[in-house]
Computed example of a mutant assay.
Amino acid sequence: MLGENHALFIEFPEMQDKIKELKTSDESFKAMSDRYHQLDHRIRGLECSNIPTEDHHFTQLKMERLQLKDKIYNILMN
């Protein structure tokens, strides 16, 4: 669905406490979650507006968000 919010708290609602804890105690995790949030915000903005973007660029943004989400998930599960 276009414009859907993929914030970490929405993607992993059962892990909200662990996300908050890691964002304050682990600089690497905080940097990843901040980048993920930036990407998600940018992607949603492009999806919800009529701003033209080349498909390759848009796909790259979504791929980076997906890769970050996988890394974040792996950290949360350990």
Rank of each mutant, 00 (worst) to 15 (best):
K62Y: 05
M15T: 03
E47S: 02
I51M: 13
Q60I: 13
L46V: 04
T53C: 09
E11W: 04
D55R: 15
I51P: 02
A31P: 03
D17K: 15
R35V: 09
L68R: 06
K30W: 11
G3P: 00
H56C: 04
L76F: 03
L8V: 02
D34W: 07
F9Q: 00
H56M: 11
G3F: 09
L68S: 06
Q38H: 11
D34A: 09
F58Q: 08
N5G: 01
F9L: 00
L22Q: 04
F29Y: 04
L8G: 02
H37T: 15
Q38M: 11
K18L: 12
E64V: 12
L2F: 01
K62D: 11
E54H: 12
M1P: 07
K20Y: 14
F12L: 01
H56F: 10
D34M: 10
E47C: 05
I19T: 07
H56N: 11
L68V: 09
Q16F: 00
F58G: 04
L46K: 00
H37C: 04
T24K: 15
L46N: 02
F9E: 02
T53K: 05
H6M: 09
G45I: 03
P13A: 02
K20Q: 12
I19W: 02
L66W: 13
D26R: 11
F58L: 13
M77F: 09
D40I: 08
F29A: 02
E14N: 03
F12T: 01
E47V: 06
K62C: 12
N78K: 09
F29R: 00
Q67A: 11
F9T: 00
P52G: 10
N5M: 05
C48S: 04
K30V: 10
L39V: 03
K20P: 01
E14F: 02
D34F: 11
H41Y: 05
I51W: 10
Y73S: 15
I72M: 00
T59K: 15
E21G: 02
M32D: 05
F58T: 03
H41P: 00
P13V: 01
M32P: 03
R44H: 01
R65M: 12
I43S: 07
D55M: 07
I72S: 06
N5H: 02
S28E: 14
Q60S: 09
F12R: 00
K23D: 12
C48N: 10
C48D: 05
H57L: 13
H57E: 14
T59V: 04
H41D: 12
D70V: 14
M32I: 03
M32N: 06
R44E: 03
F12P: 00
S33T: 15
Y36F: 15
N78S: 12
Y73I: 09
N50W: 06
R44K: 10
G45N: 06
I19R: 07
I51H: 06
Y36Q: 03
K20A: 11
L66V: 03
L46Q: 05
R44I: 14
R42V: 07
K30R: 14
L46Y: 06
M1W: 08
K20E: 08
I43A: 05
E27R: 12
